[in-house]
């Protein structure tokens, strides 16, 4: 029952992402005015900026879930952190690739050793390492806690990447919307196209994370690594007081699949 509710909520989230994307694309490619100096290539910003925003939001999500894991909160926080990290890596790679295409047009080079570009590339490498760290063998509880520490450490790089354009002299332009003075120097229709694209990416990202968490949960329950609440079997062994281990404590709890059948 819980699962069918989750499926319906997920379907609505996915549908909302598609609807907003269908609105965002014509807004970005047709309705938004042509940039006076950059011309048409500026329209790539309506895909580049949302990708970077989604990556930063995903890495922020990894950090929050990492705190929950370290505080031993019950819930699928580790799975959410993993799914968000995957999303963040994909979006960072996309932002870098799109920025490179745009940079070749605007700057004449595919890559520059610029603080924003380097700090973003560092983010990408760090979270690829985070995902690699997660795949190392070991006790699930220890792997989760190790990943949580890494997720928190790497999160420091997110504000560095965002503020790099303000802290150092860069080729990359400073933020247009998320700037210290809350008066974005951008035409209203351009801002509308940008915010709609950001909303589409954010919704699609939330849909991916939610769906991926369900997928990871299913894999874990079928392999006996975690129960349906996302609690690692290994952690239960560590936390449980051996003296309190009675036959009653081994009572079988239904998995999500069993609940669904019921």
């Amino acid at each position: 029952m819980v699962r069918s509710w989750a499926s319906r909520a997920g379907a609505r989230l996915g549908l909302a992402a598609v609807v907003v994307a269908v609105v965002a694309v014509p807004l970005a490619l047709v309705v938004a005015p042509r940039a006076a100096i950059q011309g048409e290539p500026q329209r790539l910003m309506y895909a580049h900026v949302p990708a970077a925003w989604t990556a930063f939001a995903a890495f922020g999500c990894v950090a929050l879930c990492s705190v929950a894991v370290l505080l031993r909160r019950r819930g699928p926080y580790d799975a959410v952190a993993r799914a968000a990290a995957e999303l963040g890596v994909a979006m960072t790679a996309l932002a870098i690739a799109e920025g490179s295409v745009w940079g070749h047009s605007a700057w004449g080079v595919w890559w520059a050793w610029d603080p924003r570009l380097v700090s973003t590339a560092l983010l990408l490498v760090s979270y690829v390492a985070y995902l690699a760290l997660r795949s190392l063998p070991g006790d699930p509880e220890r792997v989760h806690r190790r990943a949580a520490v890494a997720g928190l450490v790497f999160a420091v790089e997110v504000p560095v990447a965002h503020f790099s354009v303000l802290w150092w002299r860069t080729l990359h332009q400073p933020p247009t919307v998320l700037r210290p003075s809350l008066s974005p120097p951008i035409a209203p229709l351009m801002l509308l196209a940008l915010l709609t694209s950001v909303a589409a990416f954010t919704l699609a990202g939330a849909w991916y994370v939610r769906r991926r968490v369900l997928q990871l949960g299913d894999r874990a329950t079928s392999s006996g690594v975690v129960d349906h609440r996302g609690v690692a079997a290994g952690s239960a062994r560590i936390i449980a007081d051996p003296d309190s281990m009675t036959p009653a404590s081994t009572t079988h709890e239904p998995t999500t699949a069993e609940e669904t059948r019921a």
């Binding site: 790539l44 295409v101 047009s105 769906r211």
Partner: peptide, 30 residues
Amino acid sequence: MTGWTVVAVGYLLAMVVWAALAWTVLRRRP
């Protein structure tokens, strides 16, 4: 690359990445 080609390549990249992400979670029913 200039003009609309830059935009087309960028949006194509976005579509490929999102399609890959969607395929990851849709290939197996959760």
